[in-house]
Amino acid sequence: MTSVLITVRLPRDATLESAMRKLELAEDEVDGSYGLVPIDPDEGLYALRVSEETGRRIHAAAGDSTHYPGPYSNPRIEPYGPPS
């Protein structure tokens, strides 16, 4: 697994920069081409793609927070067919 996902709660229309600031992430710790992806705009929930190591750091930094920020798995997906 080369990358994982982390989530962050931010106001509507948040930017990647604001997410990086909140999570104290350096540029080389985030997949910038993936960006900041809204998961549930009504809940202000966003996702970022980071390395496994960064995912572990974010988890450790979250401490006892009620929001689990990740890391979440980023498994490979494949077409279901034709069956072989």
Binding site: A47, S73, N74, I77, E78
Partner: peptide, 8 residues
């Protein structure tokens, strides 16, 4: 194939 993050 792809990654689930792309589906997100």
């Amino acid at each position: 194939d792809g990654l689930l993050s792309d589906a997100i």
